[in-house]
């Protein structure tokens, strides 16, 4: 009598389980996986369809040519509109305006770039705010938008 019957049953179970796993796995591998490498190629599409939020200065200039021209001729030519205002997406689509663009006139915005910092390259115009405002009326100096008294933000030489 063959005494290895139970072992052959085990082998059969293992073979069936293994084949089942391999076949099952085959149907679970996502489409486009491995087309270009060890990843799901369609994932690139997921990223490409994400909405763009910053439009860039040229997009702003399409409607606001006056502002763009003023900026282009001055020292803030390289400062992007959206870095002081807000991303284009919160204001307009390519077709129409959807909401007002915020106008933040707080000096914090100016100081992000112009506060005197030891690590800032010396070619960058920097101020120590208390010294800079020393000549002003103390009441004026307290206002958050005091910078705008003297500077035009789009072309920031003295008014």
């Amino acid at each position: 009598m063959d005494h290895t019957k139970h072992l052959w049953r085990v082998v059969l179970i293992l073979v069936l389980a293994g084949a089942g796993a391999i076949i099952g796995r085959h149907f679970l591998i996502p489409k486009s996986f491995g087309e270009q490498g060890f990843y799901r190629y369609d994932s690139l599409g997921d990223y490409m369809t994400q909405p763009v939020r910053h439009g860039g200065d040229a997009a702003c200039a399409a409607c606001h040519k006056d502002r763009a021209d003023a900026k282009a001729g001055g020292k803030h030519a390289t400062v992007s509109c959206e870095s002081c205002h807000a991303p284009m997406a919160s204001h307009a689509t390519t077709e129409a305006k959807t909401a007002d663009m915020p106008k933040n006139r707080d000096m914090t915005l100016c100081l992000w770039c112009h506060q005197k910092l030891r690590a800032r390259p010396e070619t960058m115009p920097q101020i120590e705010i208390s010294e800079h405002l020393a000549a002003l009326d103390p009441e004026d100096a307290k206002k958050a938008d005091v910078c705008f008294n003297c500077h035009d933000v789009h072309n920031p030489s003295m008014k």
């Binding site: 009598m1 005494h3 290895t4 019957k5 139970h6 072992l7 049953r9 085990v10 179970i13």
Partner: peptide, 19 residues
């Protein structure tokens, strides 16, 4: 659990032991 094989003869246990 026994996979329907009830063979506990000396010979089968000896094979088990080797396995």
């Amino acid at each position: 659990l026994s996979l329907g094989v009830y063979d506990i003869s000396e010979e089968s246990l000896r094979i088990d032991h080797r396995a």
